[in-house]
Design a protein around this nucleic acid. Sequence first.
DNA 1: TCAACATATGAACACCTGTTCAAATATGGA
DNA 2: TCCATATTTGAACAGGTGTTCATATGTTGA
Lengths: 113, 113
Amino acid sequence: MSDASPIPLPRAVTEERVAELADLFRLMGDATRLRIILSCLGGPASVGEIAARSGASASLVSHHLRLLRAARLVRAERRGRQIFYSPRDEHIRCVIEDMVAHVGEPREIEEVD
Amino acid sequence: MSDASPIPLPRAVTEERVAELADLFRLMGDATRLRIILSCLGGPASVGEIAARSGASASLVSHHLRLLRAARLVRAERRGRQIFYSPRDEHIRCVIEDMVAHVGEPREIEEVD
DNA sequence: TCAACATATGAACACCTGTTCAAATATGGA
DNA sequence: TCCATATTTGAACAGGTGTTCATATGTTGA
């Protein structure tokens, strides 16, 4: 509306990366998918194991793993007739740890209104 | 591989916290909301400033800010007739930085299939 | 080859959510 | 008071999405 500032966003995050970042956050923003990620965060886990740990059906887990793999959040590795999934890199763990730290922050009193 | 790496995180994430974490990630998983967060990441910004920086209407920004405030991702502070929003704590910045680092990871070759 | 297991796929459904528009509320100054 | 600015709110629509079920694909061992 009023004054338009020339430099919109923090320089590290370009506008084209915003969509990419949002996609990744959105994928982690579903409880089932987050459980799936957590289920293989400690090391490679098969679809069956992930399904058992997360409490979701193998079919649903497979659907979600496809999205997670396409977004490069997890990697797949075949061993025999099972396929083991694991986090793509260590940053996913950091992201989760930071968010855990956030929810652990002491709750302040609302100031406005 | 099956290297026995210790399990650092999953134990800390209880089932009841999964839903809470997913809610936060889901809020950051929308491009408009992520731009809003980025717009006030550098310090308190009014709704009008955020709208100008993010390119969204004041109405839409207000709608999203309500969600972000309810989820304790941002805080609100009134100054005169404007209301300034800023990130609730520093962890949000860390989460974003980690995710930026993730997308910056070199892309490996797909192994399976 | 066959059977048994493991995972993937497609369609269909119900549900949710982001956006717009119009109107309302609130604050500060003349 | 009245007016202009700033932010909020509600309703309504369009589009997206998670889930289930049934089926298909692929792998191992006999």
